[in-house]
Design a protein around this nucleic acid. Structure first.
Lengths: 304, 304
DNA sequence: GGTTCTCTATTCATTTTTGAATGTTAAATC
DNA sequence: GATTTAACATTCAAAAATGAATAGAGAACC
């Protein structure tokens, strides 16, 4: 009677287009690779149409598949919206809330906050997604996001919690060994820890009138958390959040004005999710915790 | 990892909202009533939200369900669009084409045309959906529609094949028994066959300045095909398509000018489907057959 | 008032779907 | 050039979903 393919097939189809491989889609959708493969096969059979070019590096959508992907993507967005509406409509206190935040915030700031939240809301489970790439709240990849920029989407409700100064940071052991830089000029002669690919710091220094080469950075990494650990180990002078340095034993924030723009902290959730008691409770608690962190008024943080 | 409910559940959900019952949705989706019931159950559990009020007359969506239905409906439309795109993209000659037409056209006009099409395109299977309610081509309820009005949706490609006069029709046996009405006045004193609910003919007569009561219609029915069979059986004078009367042995179209607006015949398909060889072939063949019918040039039609 | 119809809920055997494991292949890496 | 990695394909046992059949219960109709 009804010839349209099962919706589940379209979902797998969208997953494969998005991730470029059966395995990738399987991981994302929580299914197995053979299952996704069969779904794609079935869909192609149902439609009487080849959709992907198989290769050992993945599945490449052909022109027809890309064309079909447009409406399927819209369907996906609509269903995500339905799921969000449903979440907002339920009013149970129990359940899970998923929070995404930058790696730094996730690793070094949230733990202390979450411990307090857990005892305050024991029936709500928490899931943290440490990620420096912005997860899509509209697709329900997370319920609450801590962002370093102002979200622009209208569907989101956001709150500016404050700004965190970014300053040069060093460990006492390093300073004892190499001396304490007193001025901006001094700083450039020290062992600096910086990003591998991102040239943000280099460009910023140049803007301040200082020529600084990549080689200046004695240890480079793209992993912020790793850089922070290096700083804590006294390998060199890193750049990090003032508040975090202040609460980390042994670390010293160097009083050198660099004019690095402070990091704004935005707390974000979906407008509809905001009506859910559960999510609202966690949202408020995270806001309180982060505000305390930003104002430097929290209890000293003890690194493991 | 991914908490969103399986898309198949949303499909069943939409079916239940649209049809008001598990059984109705099951029939429409080609699944069984227990399956749909379980889908709804699972969805409610996944969302942690009651969606329907169960009763013995069906399932009534609550406020939350109606709210959720909006985006789900959009998703449904998007997936239907994907299916249509897919159909248009495939270029095999084999497959099925579904045609919907009014009951009268389906029963008395199409059979002769379809026979010719079948021998012309033996690899294409045909499915006819006789229905006087307009099926939704956008939702892919049919591939080709014969309509009595001009479709307005932009996505459709339509063709006006011509107009069919609606005239009073009687069987020779009736005329021999009751005499042949010569004028409009005569007509009203005869046994008329008309609709039960629709007052179209009564209102039309009144517009012509003739008072005519419902009782005038000696046999009433809402089933057009049934009325036609009554006419053929000589029960009374019916109203029907001139061309159809002309090709039916024993039937006589009475030359009484009633100023009933002629029935326009529109052939319609989806713009994207039009790129499918298969559907294009059937579309053209049906157009040719119906045009011949409208012009009265087909071979005499023999009723069973 | 009885009968019929249509609905949901439940049960159970069957079918279908699923995924862990394994094989295979090509590109990337050391 | 050997090794590792990541991808798709295949197999088969296990799990899940499905539907036919049945029961029960209210609404509509004669």
């Amino acid at each position: 009677m009804n010839r349209e393919p099962d919706w589940a097939l379209w979902r797998s189809f969208a997953g494969v287009v998005e991730h470029g491989s059966l395995s990738g889609a399987a991981r994302a959708l929580g299914l197995s690779q053979p299952t996704i493969g069969r779904h794609v096969e079935t869909l192609e059979a149902d439609l009487g149409l080849a959709l992907f070019e198989r290769s050992l590096t993945g599945l490449k959508p052909n022109a027809a598949a890309l064309r079909l992907y447009e409406p399927v993507q819209r369907a996906q967005a609509s269903l995500a919206e339905a799921a969000i509406l449903a979440e907002g409509a339920q009013n149970t206190e129990a359940g899970t809330v998923r929070i995404t935040a930058s790696v730094m915030i996730s690793n070094y700031v949230l733990p202390g906050i979450l411990a307090a939240i857990r005892s305050l809301h024991p029936r709500i489970a928490l899931e943290i997604i440490p990620s420096d790439s912005a997860e899509n709240l509209l697709m329900r990849e997370a319920d609450i996001a801590v962002r370093m920029f102002r979200p622009t989407q209208l569907e989101l409700v956001t709150r500016h919690l404050g700004d965190i100064p970014i300053v040069p940071v060093a460990h006492e052991a390093y300073l004892a060994r190499r001396g304490r830089p007193a001025s901006l000029e001094d700083l450039w002669s020290h062992d600096l820890l910086g990003f591998d690919r991102s040239d943000a710091i280099i460009l910023h220094a140049r803007k301040l009138g200082h020529s600084i080469a990549r080689g200046q950075f004695v240890v480079r990494s793209d992993d912020q958390a790793h850089l922070w650990e290096l700083t804590k180990a006294g390998v060199g002078i890193g750049f990090g959040q003032l508040n975090l340095a202040a609460r980390t034993p042994g670390l010293v924030a160097l009083p050198i004005e660099l004019d690095i723009p402070p990091l704004p902290i935005w707390l974000t959730t979906h407008r509809e999710l905001f009506t859910s008691h559960r999510i609202r409770a966690i949202y408020d608690a995270v806001a309180a915790g982060l505000t305390a962190y930003i104002n430097g008024a929290t209890a000293p943080f003890s690194p493991r």
